[in-house]
Design a protein around this nucleic acid. Structure first.
Length: 546
RNA sequence: GCGCCGGUAGCUCAGCUGGAUAGAGCAACAGCCUUCUAAGCUGUAGGCCAUAGGUUCGAAUCCUAUUCGGCGUACCA
C-alpha cells in the first residue's frame, strides 16, 4: 500500500534522470526501525550503470522528488547509499481510515475473479485411518483453498481416491482374517495385510452385524466384507476431517476413469501417436523422448495399468473440466510421479504451467525431545484422530501450518498438549478474545463504535505500530497465496497479535475521552477482523472468550 | 550413482527473487497485576547462518565442491 504510493513518487523522479531506469525501483521494509519505514536501494543498483557514486545518485533522486510533507516525514541517505523514507504518523492514520471502511472484507482481493482453481488434497484411499502426515496434507490443502477463495477464485476442493484394485482386496482379506481369528485364532493373516488395530474393530463390527454368516469366504462374502471396510474407513476419514473443519466439494473416484473409458482413450491416444510401445509384455511410455531420464511402464504385463496412467488421465480430466489452475498437494514420497504426469499433460497439448504441485516434507511426532513412533506395530501409535481428540482441531491445525511446507516438521506433542501461555496458538486466540472482551465492556457502558473515526488521535507509538501491521495484511495474503505457504499467514498473525498486546498494554481503550475511546475501539475492531480473518484462513477458531 | 528437501541460538523453526547490527517461539535469568481477561507486557543472556572456495560495493541468501540427515529413484500407490 505504502509501496505503491512511494513508487509513483519515485518513478517520476527517477524518470527525470532517465526513463528506462524505473525498472530498478524497489522498496523494502528495513529490519532496523532507525532506517525508516521503507528503504530503497536503487542508487546502489544504478551505481554501475550510471558510473556515479551511489550517494550522488541518491542525492539526485531526492532532489527530483515531489511529495507532500504531511505524508512523508523524512527522507534521508544512509549507509552505502540507501534512501530511507519515514512516513508521518498522520499518513498511517489516513491509510487506516480508508481501510477501516472495508471492515470484515479487509484482505479480500479480486485478482482471481472469474478464474477457477482445483485444489486436490487428502486423497487417501479408504484402506485405513488418517495419520499425522495426512493431517499435514489436509490442512495445507484446506488453507491454500481458503487463500484462493480470499483472492477471488472459484475454488473446487477435491479428494481423489481409489476403491478398486489390489489394496482394497488386501483390506478385505485383512478384515476377513481378523474376523476368522475371532473364532479360530490360528487363522493365517495375509503376509502384507493391514496390521492396524482398526482392522480388528471392523472385523468385530462385521461379526456383530453378520454373525458367522460370512465365514465361507466366498466371492460374494468377500465383496461384502470389502465394501463394509471401505465404508467404515471413509466414515472414519470424514469424521476425522470434520474435527479439523475440513469439508471437500468433489470426491473423484479413480475407478471412474476406467469405467468411463478414459484410460483406454488415453492409452490408444498414446499408441496412435507412437509415444508408447510394447516390450516384455508391458506397455511403456517413451518418456525419454519427452526429455525425461527413463521410459516407464504404464501397463504391466499382467494387463493392469501402473499408477502413472490413471494419474495422467486424471490430470487431463481436470484440464477438460476447465480449470485455470490445478493444485496438487502431495507428500514427499510421491515426488517421483510428477515429472511423468506433467510430461504426459504437456504431450497431450495442455499447458503444464497451470499445474502446481506442492510437495510437503514429512512429519514426525516427538514428546520432550523423544520421537514418538507412529508405526502401526508399536504399542504407542497415534492416529490423526486420537491427536485431534487429545489436542483439539485448533492446536493440531496450527502446529501443522506453522512451518514452511518444504521443511521437515517436528510435531512437539509436549508443547501442543500445553494448555497454557506456552502454547503459541493461544497467543493468537487470546488477542482476539481480549478485543471481544473490550468491545463487550464498551457495549455495557453504552459506548458503541461510531461511524466516524477521529483517526488523527491515534498517534501513540504502539498505535502506529499496530496500524502498520494491520495495513500489511492484504499483502501478506497475496504473498502467502503466491508462494503457497500458509505459514506466512501464521507468522504474520503472531506479529499482529503481538502488536495488539503491546497496544493494549500501553493504551487504555475505554476512557472518559469519548473521541479517543471511539478511535481506539475502531483500531481494536479492525485488529479483530484481521485476526479472525487470518485465523479463518488457517481454519482455526477465533474464540469470543477463553 | 542420480533427483528433490533440509543443515541458522540449548530445542523447534522464520528469514533465502542478494542489502545496513541475523529474528521468533519454547527452555534459562530478572522485573510488572487496587484500572478494559497476566493465556499479557518489559528487560537480560544466548550465533564463525554445516564446511571450503567463488561471484559482488555488499552473501545466511547466488554459483561450485565437500559433508551430514530425510524422501525418492519399481511391471507398489
Amino acid at each position: 500500500m505504502e509501496k505503491t504510493f512511494l513508487k509513483k513518487i519515485f518513478a517520476q523522479a527517477v524518470s527525470n534522470i532517465s526513463p528506462d531506469l524505473v525498472y530498478y525501483l524497489e522498496f523494502d521494509i528495513p529490519k532496523n526501525p532507525d532506517h525508516g519505514d521503507l528503504s530503497c536501494n536503487i542508487a546502489m543498483r544504478l551505481a554501475r550503470v550510471l558510473k556515479k557514486s551511489p550517494r550522488d545518485i541518491a542525492q539526485d533522486i531526492i532532489g527530483n522528488l515531489k511529495y507532500n510533507s504531511d505524508d512523508i516525514e523524512n527522507i534521508e541517505i544512509a549507509g552505502a547509499g540507501f534512501i530511507n523514507i519515514s512516513f508521518s504518523k498522520n499518513f498511517y492514520c489516513k491509510l487506516f481510515d480508508t481501510v477501516r471502511l472495508e471492515g470484515s472484507r479487509f484482505g479480500k482481493s479480486s485478482i482471481g475473479t472469474g478464474k477457477r482453481v482445483n485444489v486436490e488434497y487428502v486423497s487417501a484411499n479408504p484402506t485405513g485411518m488418517l495419520h499425522l502426515g495426512h493431517g499435514r496434507n489436509a490442512v495445507i490443502g484446506d488453507s491454500i483453498s481458503n487463500l484462493y477463495d480470499w483472492a477471488g477464485y472459484e475454488v473446487t476442493r477435491e479428494y481423489y481416491f481409489n476403491n478398486a484394485g489390489n489394496q482394497m482386496n488386501n483390506l478385505g482379506a485383512s478384515i476377513y482374517a481378523r474376523y476368522m481369528q475371532m473364532t479360530s485364532p490360528s487363522f493365517p493373516f495375509p503376509e502384507d495385510g493391514y496390521h492396524g488395530d482398526y482392522i480388528k474393530l471392523i472385523a468385530g463390527e462385521i461379526r456383530q452385524e453378520f454373525g458367522d454368516s460370512l465365514e465361507s469366504g466366498s466371492d460374494e462374502n468377500m465383496t461384502r466384507i470389502r465394501k463394509f471396510g471401505e465404508k467404515w474407513c471413509f466414515k472414519n476419514i470424514n469424521a476425522t476431517l470434520e474435527k479439523m473443519n475440513i469439508y471437500q466439494d468433489e470426491y473423484y473416484n479413480e475407478d471412474s476413469l476406467y469405467s468411463s473409458g478414459k484410460i483406454d482413450e488415453l492409452l490408444s491416444g498414446f499408441k496412435s501417436r507412437n509415444i508408447s510401445y510394447e516390450k516384455d509384455g508391458a506397455v511403456w511410455m517413451r518418456l525419454t523422448e519427452l526429455g525425461l531420464e527413463n521410459d516407464r511402464v504404464i501397463v504391466k504385463s499382467n494387463g493392469e495399468p501402473t499408477y502413472r496412467l490413471p494419474d495422467m488421465a486424471y490430470h487431463i480430466e481436470k484440464f477438460k473440466r476447465g480449470y485455470d489452475l490445478i493444485v496438487d498437494v502431495f507428500g514427499a514420497d510421491h515426488i517421483a510421479t510428477i515429472p511423468d504426469v506433467l510430461a504426459a499433460v504437456d504431450f497431450m497439448g495442455y499447458d503444464k504451467e497451470k499445474v502446481k504441485v506442492l510437495i510437503y516434507q514429512f512429519v514426525t511426532l516427538s514428546e520432550n525431545g523423544v520421537q514418538v513412533k507412529m508405526s502401526k506395530r508399536t504399542g504407542k501409535s497415534y492416529t490423526l484422530d486420537q491427536l485431534l481428540d487429545e489436542l483439539g482441531g485448533d492446536v493440531v491445525r496450527f502446529f501443522l501450518l506453522n512451518r514452511s511446507i518444504s521443511t521437515h516438521l517436528e510435531f512437539d506433542l509436549g508443547l501442543a498438549k500445553e494448555q497454557s501461555d506456552k502454547n503459541p496458538v493461544f497467543y493468537l486466540q487470546y488477542a482476539h478474545t481480549r478485543i471481544c472482551s473490550v468491545i463487550d465492556k464498551a457495549n455495557e457502558k453504552n459506548i458503541s463504535i461510531a461511524e466516524h473515526c477521529n483517526y488523527h488521535l491515534l498517534t501513540n507509538d504502539k498505535e502506529t505500530a499496530l496500524i502498520k501491521q494491520l495495513l500489511r495484511f492484504p499483502n501478506v495474503l497475496s504473498i502467502a497465496t503466491e508462494k503457497h505457504e500458509p505459514h506466512i499467514v501464521a507468522d504474520y498473525l503472531r506479529t499482529c497479535a503481538s502488536a495488539y498486546h503491546k497496544f493494549y498494554q500501553n493504551c487504555r481503550i475505554l476512557s472518559n475521552d469519548l473521541d479517543l475511546t471511539n478511535s481506539r475501539l475502531h483500531l481494536a475492531n479492525m485488529t479483530k477482523y484481521v485476526l479472525s480473518n487470518g485465523l479463518n484462513i488457517l481454519g482455526i477458531n477465533a474464540p469470543l472468550r477463553m
